[in-house]
Design a protein around this nucleic acid. Structure first.
Lengths: 159, 159
DNA sequence: TATTGTTATACTCTATAACTATA
DNA sequence: TATAGTTATAGAGTATAACAATA
């Protein structure tokens, strides 16, 4: 019983620590978490209309406008015309943006190794499997909450 | 090599999912993450001066003023005089605040169980041990970055 | 009519600096 | 002099709603 609580508590602790570590690695570039997240997706997707980024980041279109404004002003991305849709703009990584993301990818790989340094192959495999199981349960919870959220809110509002 | 990457990537995914799930559970109460965090600490510490809360949450005193303002306006906490130091105010949970935190504690326990539901006792124990190892490495990284951060920033600024 | 992106507006979290009242 | 909390100011992230240009 207390063992289960420990897993969640450890995950919450790790959540905080990971964010601190990521924030530290951004400091040197002047980037923030939200802006880096956008760059990271852009590297994965290639040049994209803002609408695609809004969907990928699960964030409003207005929010993307602001993030791209800031990233454009600091030289990490550029806006260009969409080849076929004149309503849309294509956001692309600049050379600086691409270089920054490459460096971040290296740091990501280093952190991956450091996190499990000293653990045996089999322990790492077990850990990965356990995390996959936890992630699967969380995915189910979050997805199902989409439909339950409204019902719950109504329930409590009436009580 | 790719196994290590999987552990970090899983943790990052879980980080996002956990925050979504927590946000969902706040929705019903009208609380936000930052305000709930304050209430959670208050429940642990008991009635506290704002300065103690600033230290516990690792956040500026100004920030605490804003959070307590909002929580006071919505009835979750109350401000009272400090018995011996007339400069300080004592922040305490109201009956609503205490009731809300009790409910949240129950949800926390339920989530703990759901996360590892279906896993055997020994798997859960292994998972907890693996997470403890990862957390330990992260703690070391974040602590050491405190002194390294300045040096790294200088390095990159010069290159 | 529907979609893309922007302007307008607003709220939350966060920080630093200056100031007041007390220690 | 130092500390607790507030006011003043600022910036980042987020959201909804109204609007223009284009599909």
């Amino acid at each position: 019983m207390s063992a289960e609580i420990t897993v969640l508590d450890r995950l919450l602790e790790i959540t905080v620590l990971l964010q601190q570590d990521l924030a530290r690695s951004f400091e040197a570039t002047g980037l923030t978490l939200a802006r880096t997240h956008l760059l990271w997706e852009l590297r994965r997707l290639g040049p994209s209309p803002q609408q695609s980024l809004a969907t990928a980041l699960k964030v409003s279109a207005r929010n993307i406008t602001g993030l791209v404004d800031a990233l454009e002003a600091t030289g990490f991305v550029s806006r260009g015309p969409h080849p076929t849709d004149r309503r849309a703009t294509l956001v692309a990584l600049t050379e600086l943006g691409a270089r920054t993301m490459s460096a971040m990818e290296v740091e990501h790989a280093q952190l991956s190794e450091q996190l499990v340094a000293g653990l045996s192959e089999s322990h790492v495999a077990q850990l990965a499997a356990g995390l996959e199981a936890v992630a699967e349960r969380l995915r189910t919870l979050v997805e199902s909450s989409g439909s339950e959220a409204a019902a719950k809110a109504n329930q409590r509002a009436q009580s």
